[in-house]
Design a protein around this nucleic acid. Structure first.
Lengths: 333, 333
DNA sequence: CTGAAAGCGCTAACAC
DNA sequence: GTGTTAGCGCTTTCAG
């Protein structure tokens, strides 16, 4: 048995295909009795509209893409969930694309998207501004955690929260800080580093800049080793994943957290709560981030010529167990 | 400027649309000089074929879906990556769907897929066999980590590896075991419990069955508390996530791992290596699992009437730091 | 309220 | 080798 179409339904109902189509698109235009009959037959036949046919005529395929640089990074699954939930509510599906950490792949993949999806959300892209702009030409696009003139974006601004983190550590007695910076290609890493630097300068404390390190557990181990090699007592890690690596490295060297050293992460991924000690970190509004990105994208799809918009959502400092008071022991270190 | 089509290209090249189409589908049928010219113009115009139009005529949309029960569970991102990589190599894109842990959503979402994708991979479904079979009717489908007559599947068999884990603990001196079982609705949980039971019976050791617990960090905390309430010394956790919760709960109660209690996880997600102590666990061949699932699905799409196949891939026990020798101290506990 | 008819962009016979 | 033609399943005027 071939798949049901509006024609097979129309035939069984003794109406025209146009009427069947209306039942699904403009039901208020169809007489109630007819509508019910059509719906019943459609259900019986397991009818599902062909997205290809519909897309061909409407110019919309009901699909948006979300491109992430690394799906195994715990930051993204939460974003994916929020994006997909919002998309589904808006009646569109989600095509997920993992660039496997390659900037070249990002560009290649975005380029192939034109004609296949209605729009794309590009999360934390590492590719160059020019390449990105070129790849997104003619395709509604919104960036997450990166800004670019001419493209819409929704970012999380952690500046204030990082200040709060700094103040928190300062109040605990810390005076010597380390900045464990993230990948150079990461826009977010640059922003975070800048915020920390600004805070340290304003506060008049010493800040040792270490790195860049990769945003991975391994990168965190290296960062931890570098941190240990300094006589600083508190570190700002680029993100939670890195912070976890730092904690593991310190643990292996018999350095207790927060007894001897304090550390704050960034993002507040699930991992931040499951690691021991749990991470003091900057909580990103992941749900909002994903939802807003989809909303902006859909607006963009509906009005392709509208001006790009740039949304900014603030992060919030969350205190947990990885930050603690400076004890006499290490002050003398 | 409207999007380029095979017609606009044909016009600019002074050939027919069919020729342009051939250049992309059967290039060997087109004279070299013409082909080059068409390709050049297509590139100039940023031409990307409309997947909707192509899908309408070929009946294939170049899209497969992967439905996961919970994208925030660290097991799935790795599977997603492997599936997406294999799919991309086969020239098809991936539509990701997160059921947010709801069996009802699984069914609803799979049902909506007919006509939108060429096939679907359903990972670790919790829905009932009947509902699943019904939802997948007329849609090429392969199950991951669950078997069902009439549907293809690829599963990871951990039986032998769990035996190895048991033997490993036995050799370390453990005689009293706990089984921290996973959700009742999880097919994998049932399989794993059965394997552990079989091993314990064969070995003639005591096995306290605790649970079921949820597959989450929190579920693990509860499991940890239950584990502590027994006088057993080694536990099989349903999966790594749960095992991490157990470790955290023990740590909070001042019970050292593996000093006083040993624990083994299952799956070997990234988390297993980053937790302290690192988890002894059963490593699932995630890459193979995803790759095989896609291969089976594609075969199914190409030959819809072929018999379903059931592939079995073995897990492997990996020893890390969460298992250790039984010390005198706790033998007397 | 409903039907007839055109056409979305592409592929696949079938001619030449 | 290349052009002509006929749809794929659906939406959308336009008539009635």
């Amino acid at each position: 048995m071939a798949r049901a179409t509006i024609y097979s339904i129309a035939e069984r109902c003794g109406v025209s295909a146009a009427t069947v189509s209306r039942v699904f698109n403009r039901p208020e235009l169809v007489r109630e009795s007819v509508r019910e009959r059509v719906l019943r037959v459609a259900a019986e036949l397991d009818y599902q509209p062909s997205s290809a046919a519909r897309g061909l005529v409407t110019g919309r395929v009901g699909l948006v893409a979300l491109l992430v640089p690394d799906i195994t990074n715990p930051f993204f699954p939460l974003l994916v969930r929020s994006v997909q939930r919002t998309a589904e509510r808006a009646g569109t599906s989600l095509m997920l694309i993992d660039a496997e950490e390659s900037a070249a792949a990002e560009i290649r993949l975005v380029t192939k998207l034109r004609g296949r999806v209605d729009g794309v959300i590009v999360a934390s892209p590492r590719a160059s501004a020019a390449a990105l702009r070129e790849a997104a030409r003619g395709l509604p696009c919104v960036l997450v955690n990166r800004t670019l003139r001419e493209l819409s974006s929704v970012i999380c601004d952690n500046t204030a929260a990082l200040f709060d983190a700094g103040e928190h550590l300062y109040e605990l007695g810390h005076r010597d800080f380390a900045l464990l910076s993230g990948p150079n290609a990461s826009w977010a890493a640059g922003r975070r580093s800048k915020a920390v630097r600004r805070w340290a300068r304003g506060r008049g404390v010493r800040l040792a800049e270490l790195g860049p390190f990769r945003s991975s557990f391994k990168g965190g181990r290296q960062a931890g080793a570098a941190f240990l090699a300094t006589d600083t007592t508190a570190a700002f890690a680029f993100d939670d994943l890195m912070a976890c690596g730092v904690i593991a490295e310190l643990a292996e060297n018999g350095v207790s957290v927060p007894g001897e050293r304090s550390i704050v992460g960034c993002d507040d991924v699930l991992l931040a709560q499951t690691v021991t000690p749990s991470l003091s970190t900057v909580t990103a509004p992941l749900d909002d981030l994903g939802r807003t990105a989809v909303e902006v994208l859909i607006r963009q799809i509906e009005a392709p010529d509208a001006e790009p918009v740039a949304k900014v959502l603030p992060g919030v400092f969350t205190r947990r167990a990885s930050t603690g008071p400076l004890t006499g022991a290490q002050a003398s270190a």
